[in-house]
Simulated scan of single mutants.
Amino acid sequence: MTFATCDSAGGLILYINIKWCNPGHVTVKETICTPDIELLAVGLRPYYLPREFSHAIVVVVYIPPSANAARACDVIHSTVARLQTDHPGAFLTINGDFNHAKLPKTLTGFTQYVKCSTRENKILDMMYANVKEAYSSSALPPLGTSDHNLIRLVPTYKPVVRRQPVTTRTVQLWSGVVEERLQDCLQITNWDLFTEDFGEDVEGLADCITLYIRTCEESIVPTKKVRCFPNNKPWINKNIKALLNRKKRAFMAKDREGVKSVQKELKGELRRAKKGYKEKIEGKLEDNSTREVWDGLKGITGQKQAGLDEGGGQDRANELNLFFNRFDVPPPTHTPPAGRVSQ
């Protein structure tokens, strides 16, 4: 990611390298200006982004030295929480001049990547991201007459497709001919033989019939092995993959009109695939398949899979307790030093 931020009493500026992101793919999400904080949130769709992220959102903040740190952090928390709700698959960063404020106690799930001093021996400029192991930082000389050092952030993030292996699973190939063959097999079955063997044992009869139907299905319905990449969304199907390959071929052939045409088809196919997946999840909810609904929601929102979740502990529990009870604790009273009169 290539960008720079500037803050002053006059406002915030976000510089974006046009080689990284087209200016037409930049959208202002939020602007806030109060005595305690200046905030600018911008949505970006760069030329390249790992498939697990829908887009990037950069939140730039400036907290003046005289600001109330608690109120400033509350503004950041509410704004970022709203952005995460509206865009659950986005890569989100928060950076700027925080001065005396810190975020870990008010916003969980973010990692602070600036580890070197930004002014003298203090870290005033920080950069938070909602992804772990994303950057490494190093200090550079100040720009011009600025009293803050420049910070170089080198990406260290590894895409999911490189961190997790490709899995292979078997899928059934249903068609009208296959359904007719399965129906014929079930119609010529002598079901009286099952009732004669089990008599009044209803559970045994149900298990036997279920096993028989599954055996008929496995012997009639053809199967195919497919490769599942870890960064693929659950609604990605063969039609979308075919359109993506067409788009790549048109791009390599420098066919701009072909790329635009395929992109239009791709948008429509993605819209239909997401709608179909949504209806599938809603159908499971109507059938009271709670576990399958939850698995589908985790796929939609991009929640981490089992085994990849962040580990807990006493420090983590204390951090959460401090966050959720912060409004119940009275703010500390400030006593001016002796010999001074508070204004």
Rank of each mutant, 00 (worst) to 15 (best):
Gln172Ala: 11
His334Tyr: 15
His334Arg: 15
Arg181Met: 12
Thr195Lys: 08
Asn288Thr: 08
Leu140Phe: 03
Arg340Leu: 14
Gly313Pro: 02
Val177Tyr: 08
Lys260Leu: 14
Asp192Gln: 11
Leu186Lys: 02
Val59Cys: 14
Thr93Gly: 03
Pro141Tyr: 11
Leu193Tyr: 04
Gly299Phe: 11
Glu265Asn: 07
Ala134Glu: 03
Phe110Met: 07
Val60Trp: 10
Thr85Pro: 02
Ile63Pro: 00
Val131Cys: 05
Phe198Glu: 11
Ala273Lys: 03
Asn149Arg: 11
Lys132Ser: 13
Tyr48Thr: 10
His334Ala: 14
Gly311Pro: 01
Pro222Arg: 04
Phe229Asp: 00
Val341Thr: 15
Cys185Asn: 08
Arg316Glu: 04
Thr2Asp: 09
Pro230Phe: 06
Thr85Tyr: 12
His334Val: 15
Ala206Trp: 08
Gln183Thr: 04
Pro222Gly: 04
Asp97Tyr: 02
Glu279Leu: 03
Arg271Leu: 00
Asn95Thr: 15
Ile13His: 08
Pro88Trp: 13
Phe110Asn: 03
Ala67Arg: 06
Asp192Ala: 12
Thr210Gln: 04
Phe53Ile: 02
Asp7Arg: 01
Arg271Ile: 00
Asp74Met: 12
Lys224Met: 10
Asn321Asp: 07
Val259Thr: 13
Gly258Lys: 05
Thr79Cys: 11
Thr301Met: 02
Glu257Asp: 15
Val42Glu: 00
Val166Phe: 06
Cys208Val: 05
Gln172Ser: 11
Tyr15Glu: 09
Glu257Val: 13
Cys33Trp: 15
Gly10Val: 10
Trp174Ala: 07
Tyr212Cys: 13
Pro142Trp: 15
Arg119Glu: 02
Leu92Gln: 13
Val58Tyr: 09
Ser342His: 04
Asp7Lys: 00
Ala72Val: 04
Asn17Thr: 07
Ile209Cys: 12
Met252Trp: 07
Thr301Asn: 03
Leu182Arg: 11
Thr118Pro: 05
Gly204Ala: 06
Asn121Cys: 11
Arg214Ile: 09
Glu179Gly: 00
Pro64Gln: 15
Leu297Tyr: 05
Ala4Pro: 00
Phe110His: 05
Gly313Phe: 05
Lys238Leu: 06
Thr333Tyr: 03
Gly144Glu: 11
Ala56Asn: 12
Thr333Ala: 03
Phe91Trp: 14
Asn245Gly: 09
Met1Lys: 09
Leu308Ile: 14
Gly296Met: 12
Gly144Arg: 12
Gly276Ala: 10
Pro142Ala: 14
Gln343Glu: 09
Leu150Met: 14
Val60Lys: 02
Glu279Thr: 01
Leu173Ser: 01
